[in-house]
Write a protein that binds this DNA or RNA. Structure first.
Lengths: 144, 144
DNA sequence: TATGCATCCGGCATTATGCCGGTTGTGCCG
DNA sequence: CGGCACAACCGGCATAATGCCGGATGCATA
């Protein structure tokens, strides 16, 4: 039994977006026979690489706006900024990162207005050097 | 055409965990005939409540290192890039965003080497203009 | 060469699906 | 009241997909 190769990756790529595709069609896409494809898929399932299949359910409640705030700080680390960020209920996740950036903040708000207010408040926090906002237009891939 | 009712909610609940279940089995679970169930499901798909079906991809090795890849594309949108990204099991989440950036890709890998390889592969994808890597040093805030 | 093993393939019986006509229940209006 | 429209539901049949198997192929190794 070999590790995941190029073909497996192609399979994962397709199944991660078309989870209900018939094995026959999947086989056609990757250029293998149906039975072999089925075999590979069930191996991926047994190895736990494919954990299952999920229907992608759209918003039952009306559209929340998600965004990334990319922060550069004047000094790191900055407990103060983290404290303040934790105080915003819109803040979902904060990661300290290496590189040009210092913090990646994922937020979820009810409106563009709310996003602007939040953005302004964060930008004027002490110790925040630079702030880039990236509004999420679409979730292309999401794996639990 | 009625709004989503109790039965639809039961369907969503099952499909969100067993995306590849045969319509016949689904019908048995919710106590309706196969054809009616199929009818309801396809209505949910047409209304956009079910956006699609996704394989839930686990991790190859136990990934310890998380990182953000911030991509700028030459042209948007780019289905090709999404296809390739979906092929990497290290890729956890991809978001299309507005602003300077085009894609925010969250990855999880087992080693810095793996991250470098992934970074190189992604950077040399056709249509990728620019790639900034930000390694997560610490998860400061994480909410459900 | 012979053996073991992983991978691959095609075929056949079984199961699921797409499609359609027909039944039931309900609200509406002449 | 009786007829009508409509949505939800059901079952059946032809077609398509699946599960399961035996057997071919390639490859490393004793």
């Amino acid at each position: 039994m070999q590790d995941t190769d190029e073909i497996d990756r192609a399979i994962l790529s397709i199944l991660s977006r078309e989870g209900r595709i018939p094995m026959k069609s999947l086989a056609g896409r990757i250029g293998l026979s149906r039975s072999t494809t089925t075999e590979r898929v069930s191996r991926l399932e047994k190895k736990g690489i494919i954990r299952g299949y999920r229907a992608d359910i759209g918003q039952l409640d009306q559209g929340q706006i998600q965004a990334f705030l990319l922060l550069t700080l004047k000094r790191t680390p900055s407990i103060g900024v983290l404290d303040r960020l934790a105080g915003f209920s819109a803040v979902r996740k904060v990661s300290s990162v290496s590189g040009q950036l210092d913090l990646v903040v994922e937020v979820e708000v009810g409106s563009i207005n709310a996003l602007n207010e939040l953005r302004n408040e964060v930008a004027t926090l002490d110790n925040v050097e630079d702030l880039t906002t990236a509004i999420v237009l679409r979730r292309d891939i999401e794996r639990s």
